[in-house]
Nucleic acid binder design. Structure first.
Lengths: 175, 175
DNA sequence: CAGATCATGTAAGCAGTTACATGATTGT
DNA sequence: ACAATCATGTAACTGCTTACATGATCTG
């Protein structure tokens, strides 16, 4: 799964500009995906050359012009190919968990702080997802709804698990 | 957090070869971290040049020789610097979730299959973690124990959440 | 006899980030 | 006056993966 597959999926419904795509990725897709402008724009150019998408320049008043991209028939085929290909493993990388793992080499309070920050971030994350769910539910597909529900449930249990972990850590005898 | 920080952490207790490090990363660290030989060996050479670690060649009988690395005082300082630096955000990338998100464009059964595979992988993952917890508990530090407990709890709730999600998806009226 | 485990290393390539460059408009 | 939003793009860099190269010993 590359950024290209995600861009194709995003274009299956509506035509979008690179800027719009970034916005979508930062909101609804952010919990299992991400891409910067430095990835999006070059990928878009490449995809246009490969005729997976077409560009239309839209002149706007009071705002910069934008390039709106639409998916071609070839692009739709490519997207289907992706959707039927073998599923890749999840990738998870956590600095906070790494520090907890090596926690014995620093003061306990440092690690408690790391986990508390992680907990706060997860809470913020969950709030954003819940808000999004309420706001966007009418225009979401069923599978998108389930996708966000899974995200919310996972965040909730993450919060519980982390809270427990922090309590356990605090209860340890001072090193 | 780079592979270098993880390698330093791994060397805080014992001296290890590159091969040993890979093994550790594949077992206990695998749930929030990973590195291939193609990363480990060049990083080790670089770190030796920077005097963060030292190399001793160990001649073995019936086995290839190995290079065992030990952390230096400078390496320990570097590791402390990492442990007190700002915590980076988690990175999570999920092909399965991406496909669920775009599920409306293929038959429901395809997505059910994707989620069922994801569920099976999570189950396998949890079993490996539980087994590891039982096997390694005596030699684990308290924070390592908490780290694995968090991992097991998260996997458990992932399994519940995914199972629910699959039921929800199956119950949807045929598209 | 095949496949796993032990063991190290290099080279090519890729996907992605960060920082830079530019600039108008709108809201506080 | 300042920050945010809208909008696109490039260049340098980095961290990492995959594949290749080599080869002994152990296990079924």
């Amino acid at each position: 799964m590359t950024s290209q597959d995600v861009i194709l999926g995003l274009l299956m419904h509506h035509s979008l500009s690179g800027y719009d795509m970034k916005h979508k990725m930062e909101t609804i897709l952010s919990y299992f995906n991400n891409a910067s402008f430095g990835t999006i724009y070059p990928t878009l150019s490449k995809m246009e050359k490969e005729e997976l998408i077409t560009k239309q320049s839209v002149i706007q008043e009071g705002r910069p012009n934008k390039n709106v991209y639409s998916i071609t028939e070839k692009g739709r085929e490519q997207f289907k190919t992706y959707m039927y290909s073998p599923v890749e493993d999840n990738e998870f990388k956590s600095d906070a968990m790494t520090r907890l793992f090596f926690g014995e080499f620093v003061e306990k309070d440092v690690i408690v702080g790391v986990l508390e920050e992680y907990l706060q971030r997860t809470k913020g994350h969950m709030e954003r997802l819940s808000k999004l769910y309420v706001e966007c539910q009418p225009e979401m597909s069923h599978s998108q709804e389930i996708c966000i529900q899974i995200g919310i449930n996972n965040s909730e249990s993450q919060i519980r698990t982390l809270t427990q972990g922090i309590v356990r850590l605090k209860n340890l005898a001072e090193k």
